[in-house]
């Protein structure tokens, strides 16, 4: 990973960072396997350069962005909490830029209501996409409402810990939406499409009763198979220390984002 310069941001939390070791060795990235260590162990063949992201759909200026163009956006360091739907969390220093800045370049049409995202499909480089057993339907797809996508907290990340993204963290470019569960942060993005219909999302397709479209972090709505009331902060507390902490609504970003959901029943729209 190459060094990456990024300016400080007022959106960063001052919470203690999760170690780089944990951030890059404890991952869910099923394209590389189901185990937490698989993404690091099995992503060596993946080639994140050269790379282009196609931005199309309901925009007046559809086009492709090369990785160099993405890296040329003014990059900010965003230290965000990351809450996984499996009830663990991290604090990660991302480097990236607001997704809104990219959307501005393609000029979404007034009819556009949602943004759909798609991950690359490369079975030769991503062992979880090949072979007899396939855990999910590829490509991995995600989506946001346009106002969520344009929120200043929503970023496209190109790096972490001052370097370009390691393969296991979604190289070369991924989405980070800190008030939503981690699976919304789609990795290795190749396509972004503006649309007027709510786009399908991978985990919702796999288990609609467990994962909704919104996937906002919400301690009041349990996952059917585990409570979302508390979380384990990775790398803290050790073996004998209580490292469970209460989970905050919208992962602690309530003040910034709750207004996006005024009048929406968050239990029905989980």
């Amino acid at each position: 990973a190459a060094a990456l310069k990024a300016s400080e941001s007022p959106f960063s939390t001052d919470e203690k960072l999760t170690s780089e070791d944990d951030v890059t060795a404890y991952n869910n990235f099923y394209e590389f396997g189901l185990g937490k260590g698989d993404p690091k162990a099995k992503s060596g063949k993946f080639k994140p350069t050269p790379w282009t992201v196609k931005v199309d759909g309901m925009v007046s200026k559809p086009r492709e962005f090369g990785l160099e163009e993405l890296l040329a956006f003014p990059l900010e360091e965003r230290i965000y909490r990351m809450r996984c739907v499996e009830a663990w969390s991290m604090v990660i220093p991302w480097a990236g830029f607001p997704l809104a800045a990219l959307l501005d370049k393609v000029e979404p049409l007034g009819s556009a209501k949602y943004v759909a995202f798609e991950t690359v499909v490369r079975p030769d480089e991503m062992p979880g996409q090949g072979g007899f057993f396939q855990s999910l339907a590829w490509p991995y797809v995600e989506g946001l409402r346009l106002d969520e996508a344009r929120h200043p907290l929503t970023i496209l990340a190109l790096g972490l810990y001052g370097k370009t993204l390691p393969n296991q963290n979604g190289a070369p470019v991924r989405l980070v939406v800190p008030w939503k569960y981690g699976f919304k942060g789609i990795k290795s993005i190749v396509r972004i499409t503006l649309t007027d219909k709510q786009p399908p999302t991978t985990w919702n397709i796999a288990a609609p009763n467990e994962y909704g479209f919104y996937a906002n972090v919400n301690p009041a709505v349990d996952h059917p198979r585990w409570s979302q009331a508390s979380e384990t902060r990775i790398g803290e507390g050790g073996f004998f220390g209580a490292n469970r902490r209460p989970t905050l609504p919208f992962n602690g970003y309530e003040e910034e984002v709750a207004k996006l959901y005024a009048g929406l029943d968050l239990k029905a729209n989980f």
Binding site: D21, Y26, K36, G37, W88, T232, I234, F239
Partner: peptide, 15 residues
């Protein structure tokens, strides 16, 4: 391994 900090990531879950 857990007690001596040698289990990575989420040591309690690993154990």
């Amino acid at each position: 391994l857990g007690a001596t900090g040698r289990l990575p990531g989420n040591p309690v879950k690993e154990f």
